[in-house]
Each structure stands twice: as C-alpha cells, then as structure tokens.
Design a binder for these strands. Structure first.
Lengths: 337, 337
DNA sequence: CATTAGCACTCTAATGATGAGAGTGCTAAT
DNA sequence: ATTAGCACTCTCATCATTAGAGTGCTAATG
C-alpha cells in the first residue's frame, strides 16, 4: 500500500509523462502544488522506485512509470472516471444518424473510439451465443447452382453457393425453402440437427450446408474485429521506429493472432486493461490494451477496445471504451428485442 | 530515344537499385558483362543524367533512377513480362480451394498479391455496371420492423431494415415478396422505377428502399478495397521514418481519398503504373501504384493493384497484378455465366 | 572518335572529443 | 520529517577528423 502522498506523486508523474512523453523530474512534480520541495519529492521517488512503480531511463533523468505504476494508477481510476454528459450525448447522436445495422454501428464505434483516444480501436461484430434460424431462402442462379440465404435471428445474413446434383426449378426451390423455414425457424443448429424430418435429397443437401453455416456462427471466439485509427497510433513518438510498427502490423493483419488474443482477455466482466509486459505477445511489450465486452450476457456479445502505447491516456480511454460498450449494448438490445 | 547501350545501362541500374536499395556505381554496372570499362559507363551515366533518367543523391554517390527512368524501364517491360507456368498454376489452385464467393476471392486475391510482391495489395469487390434484381425477401423482425433482403443477379446480398407504418404479418410479407420478386426479377433499378404496378402502401415503401439500395450498387466509383500486406510494405527501408507511414496510413484509412483515387487511374484498358510524383497526392510522391481492372467489360468490374515504394520490383509486380486480374475475371465470368 | 587509365576532388558516414545542461543522490542543517 | 546545497553522472548536441566510395576530367590509346 502506498502512502497518500506517494500515491499523489505517482499520479502526477503519470499524468505528466502521459501528456509530455518525457521523463518527469522532481522539480516538475514539486511545482504541482504539493507544498513540499523537490528534495522531498526525490526521497519519495526513491521509495517509489524501490517498490517498482517508477524507473529512471538513466542516472540523470527524471522518472517514468513502470507497468506496475500504471497498474496501480489505473486501479484507482477505474471506479469513478466517466465521460461528460455532453460527450455522451454527442456520441449517442452519431449512432442515431447512421443506418440501423450492426455493421454500421460496429464501424462507427471503431471510428468514434479511435478518434477520441487517438489510438487504434478494435470492435468486433456482435456474435450470438447460439445462432437461431429466422428464415431460409433458395435462389436458383444457374442450372445446378443455387444460392442458399440464411436470415438469422439477429437480422444477420449468411450465404453460400450450393451445387446440386440434379436440376431443380425455382418454384420447387421456393417451395422447399418455405417448407424448411416453417419447419426450422427459431431453432438453433443443434435443434435443427436433432429434428428428424422427411426431406428430399436436395433439401437434405441444403440443410447440411445451412447447418455448417450456423455452426460457424457459434463458438467461443469473437469475430474478426473492425480496426480503425492506425493513423492516430502511428503518430505517437513511441512508434518512431518502423520495426515496431511492422511487428504490430503483422499481428493486426494476422487474424489468427488477433482472434486468439481477444477472448483470453475477456473472461470476466468489466473493463480489462492489459499493460505492457502483461501482454503475452512480445511485440506488445510497449503497448496497452483496454478491452471490454458489450451485448446481452448469455445471448449475444462482442468485444470493443483500444490498443496503444503503454503511455496512453487511460484516464480518457477507459471511460470512453466503457461508454461505447454501453451504447453498443443498448443498440444491440434494441435489435434483439 | 535512348541508344541500345544506354537502355541496357539504365536497366542494369534499375535492377540493381531495386534489389539492393543503394545507389549504383559505374563499377557495379561495368561488372555486369557489358564489355566496357567503368569510365565509359560513367560517360554514359552523365548523358542519362542530363536526359533526366538518373540522379545522384550527392556528388560522390552512385546513380539512382528518376521517375522518368522507371517510366522508360516499365514501358519496355509491359509487353513481355509473364508469370511462370508453375506460379500461375499455384495461384489458380489456391482459388479453387476456397469458398465459391466473391468476398473470398477478393480477400484471397489481396492476400496472394501482397505476399508475392511484398507490398500492399488493393482489391475491390466486383461491381456491376447496373444492378439487377434476382430475388426479394421480407422477414418480419419485430412488430413494425422488417428486414428487406435483396438478392442481386451476381449472387450478392443487400439488406436493410424497414420500419413500417402498420403491422403486417409474416404471411402477408411473404406474399408481397413473392409478388414483387415475380414482377421485378431481372430488372435494373431504373427499369423497376419505370414499371407502373399497382402496389399496396407497404409494398410501395419496400420498393422505395429497394430502389435506393440498388442505386447504391451502381455508379462509377469502385467499392472500398480490401487491403492486405501493409506489414510487408512497412518492412521496406523507405518507410523507416514513421512520418511517411502515418501519412500513407491516413490515406488508406480515409476511404474518401482512396475511392477518388482508384477510378481516375482506371479509365482505360491494361495495366496502369503510376510512378512517384506522377501521383496527384503529395504523400505518394515516393510511392508507385500498379493498377488494373478485372471483370467483364460493360457488365461488371473491379480494380486490383499494388502500392509500394517507387523502388519496387516492377518486373515481378506488373505481371502478378496482370495475372491476378485475369484470374479474377475468369472467376467472375463463371459466376455471371 | 570512342574508349579508358589515372588521378584529383567531393561528399558521406563513422568515430571520438568536448562541453553544456538536466537531474539526480547524499550530506548536513533546520 | 524536511530541505538547501553540491558533487556527480549521464545524455545530447556540436565539432573535428578521417577513411572510403565514387565521381568528373584529362590525356593517352587503338
């Protein structure tokens, strides 16, 4: 546990370092109205360094926060930081101005978030815990080629070409589609599989494909996220070396890494902050990630978050992520009724 | 017009510079089997410099090609460069291993292209010159909320929520959908508008939305492209400074710029190469873009291309872009049958 | 006349020396 | 417990020096 004053000093140092990007000297801290001299601050700083909250880049430099320092700072921040009423209103307003569609919302959320925190925003599409069929349609394209269209409960479309073994007219296809829709509407993939219905071979084939498509919708993993704001993050001085940029780019373009990265962090409620070396990936050792879920627990959910250098405006980023998650939850709830 | 020998020297310099990234000296050129001494090369290089094909970064450095130099080199390249049979086969093979869907093909094309040329690949979805309706479906979501699903001729789905003014049952909606489909299937947006049919108010409303959606499909502009391979481009030494990266990132993330950028380049047939300062955008002054169209002329088309530093392996990039455009054209043709 | 050997010249990039400035840690006084 | 004072350390910018790369020019050559 830190004394009140050390806590205060740590906050000041983090605040200064985050905004200026330069190691913070005892002088600067002393001028922030603590009523003590730089020498006293120095003594405290030695303590804070010994306890692992601060480090010096070199002997004659000011201090910068360690991951542990940020961690402490953030814990005390999490509870009370909120966006202002005005900002909340402004954000809500923007969502009401776009198409009523999850893709649009997700894209907008990423755009707003990245713009507000000047870093990369990651937002996945909402994904239902279990896919439920709403409607099924078959459209004949060419002789043997049929387009299978699934409308899922949450107004999501999935499509897949199916190559039939025999020619079937559009009328017959429509009849089959009607039959299958009325038989299976409202069911999940497993419920559909369980139901033993008398189907024609063509219908069998269609449902096999539909089953696959629905299975793909389920699962623990989140969708591939929308990414926005790379341009902002790259302006940060910590990304002056193009090596780091390339390494991070590699991670972001390699969907596999990203996917495996998201859910691990999100087993639990509330906003998660992963700071610097707390990240498993080595390339991320100078980055922090602020992530949270949104959606309706047990029904549908997505992830929303920010990625940026460890030296990040947590004070602003955390409430922003938090608020946007709330808004996305509301929007999704509306849609899922 | 250049003499045969100067042409040869220019080629060698470009070849060397592209692979090594270092100004090329007369010695290096002389060792390439021209049968003349470095001094002769130097005399030729002076000529080439005076004619604007080469420059020296500073007095005691080798030469590097100017935009004009690259331009000349490329003109002579365009005609004969092809990918090897093996590579062609390998690429085709990969396309046959993915889902039969334009999104997959587009994504894959970007992935393959960027991997092969170690730079950024841009590929837009194919876009029809005029959207033709294939099928229309209405799915009731909530009391007044209906999902309108359009299947367009090329197996493309479009969706939009419609808020009705009165409650309509799913049966009635399906009936309307059937009616509208049989009335309008195969028609373009303008043909649909021209047809004067007796519609209920709800059907009117639906068709108004459908009309809008189809109109959005048309137009001169290409779709927003799939982008892949930033990680490769960033590894190039010319992007060591993060300023440039950020500027280019800004352009790529700002869809507006990108969209306006694509079609301007693509009024015409064949592969287009825009080198360095030939680009309108100032941030692109050290970059080249290789772009071409694919699709069925007059019916459906997209753009495919590569972006990278001016010092690019044109010899490889141009035939690769060209070949992938052919493959995409074939695939799209199959689908549009 | 085209080619080329020879050479002086220029410019870069790496290295090391120097000094100012920033900020510290410690000591001793309050 | 706090703080003034001060020696100490390390960075960073500047400058000088030097090796090396590659040139352009001149004069000689077949």
């Amino acid at each position: 546990m830190l004394t009140r004053r050390r806590d205060r000093i740590l906050s000041i140092i983090i605040g200064e370092y985050v905004s200026k990007g330069v190691p913070v000297s005892s002088d600067v801290v002393a001028r922030k109205g603590l009523g003590v001299s730089p020498a006293t601050i120095r003594n405290e700083m030695i303590e804070l360094e010994e306890e692992g909250y601060l480090v010096q880049p070199h002997t004659s430099a000011g201090r910068i926060p360690t991951d542990k320092g940020y961690r402490h700072y953030i814990e005390s921040l999490m509870s009370y930081a909120r966006l202002s009423r005005d900002e909340q209103f402004l954000i809500r307003h923007q969502f009401h101005q776009v198409e009523r569609a999850v893709e649009e919302w997700t894209r907008l959320a990423a755009a707003i978030l990245s713009g507000m925190v000047h870093n990369v925003a990651l937002v996945t599409l909402p994904k239902p815990v279990e896919a439920r069929l709403k409607h099924l349609e078959l459209v004949s394209l060419q002789e043997l080629l049929v387009l299978l269209v699934l409308v899922l409960k949450e107004a999501k479309l999935r499509q897949q070409m199916v190559t039939l073994e025999e020619t079937v007219s559009q009328e017959e296809l429509s009849a089959s589609a009607r039959k299958l829709t009325s038989a299976y509407a409202g069911l999940t993939a497993s419920e559909i599989a369980a139901k033993d219905l008398k189907l024609t071979p063509v219908e069998e084939q269609v449902m096999k494909t539909a089953f696959q498509l629905m299975r793909n919708e389920e699962g623990e993993e989140y969708e591939e996220p929308y990414i926005d704001g790379l341009r902002h993050m790259l302006r940060q001085p910590e990304f002056a070396s193009s090596d780091k940029i390339a390494a991070i780019m590699e991670m972001l373009e390699q969907k596999s890494l990203l996917k495996s990265f998201l859910p691990r962090v999100l087993t639990g409620e509330g906003v998660r902050v992963v700071i610097g070396r707390e990240n498993k990936e080595n390339v991320m050792r100078d980055c922090s990630v602020i992530l949270t879920r949104y959606g309706i627990p047990g029904e549908v959910g997505g992830a929303i978050g920010v990625m940026g250098p460890t030296r990040m405006e947590y004070q602003r980023a955390i409430p922003t992520v938090s608020f946007l998650s709330t808004v996305m939850s509301e929007l999704v709830s509306e849609l899922y009724g």
